[in-house]
Design a protein around this nucleic acid. Structure first.
Lengths: 141, 141
DNA sequence: AGAATATATGTAGAGTTGTTCAGACGTTAA
DNA sequence: TTAACGTCTGAACAACTCTACATATATTCT
């Protein structure tokens, strides 16, 4: 099965002992599987994206793009309750997306990961909104 | 009235009289709120990230980084059932993350959005894995 | 000391999500 | 035509997520 063997499956496929699924381009499949990141990396990646999949957390992180903020100000900025903000920040603290600086009874949160900042910027340009302080020109026409 | 008769902004900071939550830095809060993207944009952003928050879908999209693939090969590559792949692709088709080319009874899917490709690349570097043959400029010493 | 404050956390319930199973649809081969 | 095939879809169910409420912890003020 070398070269451009496309849909060479006119005869029953299961004959091949342990192949449980149909294959059309076995070479591609094997090549891509070889390049596929480890299970744990894919999982970590999905977790990071999952943290960015909630509008409330997105607003929190967008707010933090400008610099650190305390919990109550984050609540006021995002429209979430302080409890919801605290729960959200706990999730974000786990994988070290945000970090906390404590001053007395206040807790000031800030972004701890430049990759997440880039993900947010990229995503914001994707949905048509200019990034936070990077692309700020085009508005109306 | 469902509760919340407790502390409401008693600190004489600089909060306006009509503000329902405590504020520490009202100027920052107002500035960030002014810069906050529209509700719909934040929602769209969360939806996109949500599509990337499942390991199965991430594997599908990583496989598609190399070019188009049919459903059965995607199943073989990702380890998902063909039904699960089809369901996943349906979700990804909606916001036009992937596109489909039909040839007979086969359906070949490919990435339809360069932003998503960039998000994946960025995310993959984040979790420590080099991108799909694209980002590999790590210099050690 | 006690009271007020700022944040953190436990829990329960409604809502959402991903998978599997069964079957439908359109296409190709016999 | 019938049969096999690749893909798509709906329903059901477990697993997960988000929010609100109550409470806990730690800090500051009087």
């Amino acid at each position: 099965m070398t070269g451009t063997a496309r849909a060479l499956r006119t005869t029953p496929r299961r004959a091949g002992a342990d192949c449980a699924v149909r294959l059309v381009d076995a070479d591609r499949v094997e090549a891509v599987r070889a390049r596929m990141p480890a299970e744990s990396d894919v999982g970590d990646l999905a977790v990071i994206f999952g943290l960015l999949s909630d509008p409330g957390r997105v607003r929190i992180l967008i707010a933090l793009l400008d610099g650190e903020m305390c919990v109550c100000d984050l609540a006021a900025t995002t429209g979430l309750s302080e409890s919801a903000v605290s729960h959200a920040l706990r999730l974000l603290r786990g994988p070290r997306v945000v970090q906390v600086r404590r001053a007395g009874r206040m807790a000031y949160y800030s972004l701890a990961d430049s990759h997440v900042r880039m993900l947010l910027d990229l995503g914001l340009t994707h949905v048509g909104h200019a990034g936070q302080g990077r692309l700020q020109a085009v508005s109306n026409s």
